[in-house]
Deep mutational scan, measured.
Amino acid sequence: MEVRTIKVFTTVDNINLHTQVVDMSMTYGQQFGPTYLDGADVTKIKPHNSHEGKTFYVLPNDDTLRVEAFEYYHTTDPSFLGRYMSALNHTKKWKYPQVNGLTSIKWADNNCYLATALLTLQQIELKFNPPALQDAYYRARAGEAANFCALILAYCNKTVGELGDVRETMSYLFQHANLDSCKRVLNVVCKTCGQQQTTLKGVEAVMYMGTLSYEQFKKGVQIPCTCGKQATKYLVQQESPFVMMSAPPAQYELKHGTFTCASEYTGNYQCGHYKHITSKETLYCIDGALLTKSSEYKGPITDVFYKENSYTTTIK
């Protein structure tokens, strides 16, 4: 009895394709271990004539594949690729409408935090270190965002349907971005203890939790000093293409032309909904596939993004 075979390709990165001759009487799992086709788990399936010449994702289970996976995804987590594939199996079914010149995501599976993050990423200057993220990001900007969303979920250790947080998501993504040249110098002034300067680099240099107003941050924000008295913390120097200011959701007025974009969060910790506000020729609110415009805006804002380049204080 002759062994019926077909020729397929296996890959971990969709760049390096490895030619395989597979036995049609055995499952993919018996031949390769966990195997995925377009995100779908085909591990328990036997090869079919229609699979001839198709590319299958496999887990990096030998040295060659491990090197290829690390170079593309910059992670050695053995569960990463499987999590990416199972997320992709959902995100490829989502709709990605162009809204006001940006790629958004039609609401499904509690994905409003991903839509808000995706919209924000198209408006701030950011370059990702893992080629996987950078490639998928370019495709997302062009309207094909399924891979990018699935990668975000995998890097953030999230599953489809789980509630997510924009600030946490951005923080994970910033860790995989090139923020080497970003720098922030802060000064804390206390009447009792004097003053202390701190220099922050990388992710810490672009994120701040405690106030939404970048102007206020430049002037000074009140913080408790270690001595128990009130101290003032203010920005001395900022070198970065953008800054992200966050605070627990509270009524906040966004003035046209003073910011790049913002995240609105309605609801409580267990259950809520994100919308995205962007400042173009007027203010726009993007909620999944829905767009509304207004000249002014007041609502429960939790993150505001500002364009920056270089700032030095005039406070002496």
Rank of each mutant, 00 (worst) to 15 (best):
2 E>V: 13
4 R>K: 13
6 I>G: 06
9 F>G: 05
12 V>D: 09
14 N>P: 05
15 I>E: 07
16 N>E: 03
17 L>W: 00
17 L>E: 08
18 H>V: 06
20 Q>K: 15
24 M>W: 09
24 M>C: 14
25 S>K: 15
26 M>F: 10
26 M>P: 04
28 Y>S: 08
30 Q>N: 13
31 Q>E: 05
32 F>Y: 09
32 F>H: 05
33 G>K: 06
33 G>F: 02
34 P>C: 07
34 P>K: 13
34 P>T: 13
36 Y>R: 03
36 Y>S: 03
37 L>R: 13
37 L>M: 11
37 L>Q: 12
38 D>E: 12
40 A>G: 13
41 D>L: 11
43 T>Q: 12
44 K>N: 15
48 H>N: 12
50 S>G: 12
50 S>L: 14
50 S>K: 13
50 S>V: 12
51 H>G: 02
53 G>D: 10
54 K>C: 14
55 T>Y: 08
57 Y>C: 09
60 P>D: 12
61 N>Y: 14
62 D>I: 06
63 D>V: 11
64 T>D: 15
66 R>W: 08
67 V>M: 11
72 Y>D: 03
74 H>D: 07
75 T>N: 12
75 T>K: 10
76 T>M: 15
76 T>H: 09
78 P>S: 13
78 P>E: 15
80 F>V: 03
81 L>G: 04
82 G>T: 12
83 R>M: 07
87 A>C: 14
95 K>W: 12
97 P>D: 00
97 P>N: 09
99 V>P: 12
100 N>R: 12
100 N>E: 13
101 G>P: 05
105 I>Q: 00
107 W>D: 04
108 A>M: 04
110 N>W: 00
111 N>Y: 02
112 C>K: 02
113 Y>P: 03
114 L>S: 00
115 A>T: 12
123 Q>L: 05
124 I>F: 05
124 I>A: 01
127 K>A: 11
133 L>I: 06
133 L>N: 02
134 Q>I: 07
136 A>M: 09
137 Y>A: 08
144 E>H: 07
146 A>K: 11
149 C>R: 03
150 A>M: 00
152 I>S: 09
154 A>T: 11
156 C>F: 00
160 V>C: 06
162 E>N: 05
163 L>H: 07
163 L>M: 13
164 G>H: 03
165 D>F: 06
166 V>H: 00
169 T>C: 12
172 Y>C: 09
172 Y>D: 07
172 Y>S: 14
176 H>Y: 14
177 A>P: 04
177 A>I: 06
181 S>F: 11
182 C>S: 09
187 N>C: 12
188 V>W: 10
188 V>T: 15
190 C>F: 00
196 Q>E: 10
196 Q>D: 07
198 T>I: 15
199 T>F: 06
201 K>T: 14
203 V>C: 10
205 A>E: 06
210 G>K: 01
211 T>L: 10
212 L>T: 07
213 S>A: 06
215 E>Y: 03
217 F>D: 04
219 K>E: 00
220 G>P: 11
221 V>S: 03
229 K>H: 10
230 Q>F: 15
232 T>N: 02
233 K>W: 08
236 V>W: 10
240 S>E: 00
240 S>C: 03
241 P>L: 03
241 P>R: 06
241 P>N: 07
242 F>W: 10
251 Q>W: 12
255 K>V: 14
257 G>R: 07
258 T>Q: 13
259 F>R: 00
259 F>P: 00
260 T>S: 06
261 C>T: 02
262 A>L: 06
268 N>F: 03
274 Y>V: 02
275 K>C: 08
276 H>P: 00
276 H>C: 14
277 I>G: 00
278 T>A: 10
279 S>C: 15
282 T>M: 11
287 D>V: 04
288 G>A: 09
290 L>H: 15
290 L>Y: 14
292 T>H: 12
293 K>F: 10
299 G>V: 00
301 I>P: 00
304 V>L: 03
307 K>C: 12
308 E>H: 04
308 E>P: 10
309 N>C: 15
312 T>W: 05
312 T>A: 10
313 T>Y: 15
